[in-house]
């Protein structure tokens, strides 16, 4: 007797095309890094201060911050310090698990974004720890050490359905204590919270690098302007009748922009890249931005 088990990886969240993309992430990471000038990734890029390999002659385009000025003072020539790449960089991927992530194809988009974050970290030869932010708690759910464990990552993401509230006001201040120093921190969230964006200041001075992947409010199949619709809050279940005319839509969009700008400002203030994305954004584009822009 054969037992047909439910696929552990949700094909709705991770379709075949996305799985094929994941399989080529390590090669893509190498190819993308190879094509990038050293100067673009010099600050916190390849290698670290503790894996010194030697000097080489300065070439135009090198980051002048890597010039060893002691050599220049003694010998009168410009030499560049070279380091070996740090292979065991830890990538912390924290996914907002609240119910607000689900509507309007948000669940699939956020899960895929988290999967890409994990694949990137593993593709660069490091380790990945995946965690969920829910109800004010930050719960690690999986830790992967090699690209072959991406399937488990996808299974974890398939099992965890958005529910409850994120409680970012409580969860974010606790995160810096859980994130290892020097680790890459990636937060995937819609940031739909009344919490002060200043909670990100908890990351200041902790040597955390990474990005805030902001899933912006996706497009809504709303009634025509001038008509009334009942907005249903996915998190709280509250319902509010709203007459959506042109001015109202403008006001709502302005509030959303101001909200995003505030979080972007605070993220950049603590050294985190603010990376907005939408469910309709193609995974390839998001992967490219992750590889090229996230430190």
């Amino acid at each position: 007797m054969s037992v047909i088990e439910k696929p552990s990886v949700d094909p709705q969240l991770f379709p075949g095309s996305f799985l094929r993309l994941l399989s080529v992430v390590p090669a893509a990471v190498r190819r993308l890094h190879a094509g990038v000038a050293d100067g673009r990734r010099a600050v916190r890029g390849e290698g670290g201060r503790f894996f010194f390999r030697g000097h080489r002659e300065y070439r135009p385009g090198d980051d002048i911050r890597r010039i060893d000025w002691n050599v220049e003072a003694r010998h009168g020539r410009l030499e560049i310090r070279q380091y070996d790449a740090q292979k065991d960089v830890l990538t912390e991927v924290w996914l907002d698990g609240s119910a607000s992530m689900a509507p309007c194809e948000g669940r699939g988009a956020s899960a895929r974004a988290a999967a890409l974050c994990c694949a990137t970290g593993l593709g660069e030869g490091g380790r990945v720890r995946l965690g969920i932010l829910r109800d004010g708690q930050a719960l690690p759910v999986f830790e992967a050490t090699e690209p072959g464990q991406m399937r488990q990552v996808l299974e974890v993401l398939s099992r965890d359905a958005p529910a409850g509230q994120a409680g970012l006001a409580q969860a974010l201040p606790r995160l810096p204590r859980q994130v290892a120093s020097g680790a890459r921190f990636l937060l995937v969230s819609d940031l739909l919270t009344r919490a002060d964006a200043g909670v990100l200041q908890a990351f200041a001075g902790r040597g955390v690098r990474g990005a805030v992947l902001h899933m912006r409010v996706p497009e809504v199949h709303a009634p025509a302007p001038g008509s009334t619709f009942r907005a249903h809050d996915a998190e709280s279940g509250a319902i509010r009748s709203v007459r959506l005319d042109g001015p109202a839509a403008g006001r709502i969009a302005a509030r959303a922009r101001a909200h995003a700008d505030l979080w972007a400002q605070h993220a950049q203030g603590v050294g985190l890249l603010y990376l907005p994305f939408a469910p309709s954004m193609s995974p390839e584009v998001l992967l490219r931005r992750l590889v090229l822009e996230v430190p």
């Binding site: 607000s100 992530m101 689900a102 509507p103 309007c104 948000g106 819609d190 739909l192 919270t193 009344r194 409010v217 996706p218 809504v220 199949h221 709303a222 009634p223 619709f229 009942r230 907005a231 249903h232 809050d233 996915a234 998190e235 709280s236 509250a238 319902i239 509010r240 509030r255 909200h259």
Partner: peptide
């Protein structure tokens, strides 16, 4: 009725 992530 339209389900929105938030009424924020």
């Amino acid at each position: 009725e339209v389900e929105l992530p938030s009424l924020l």
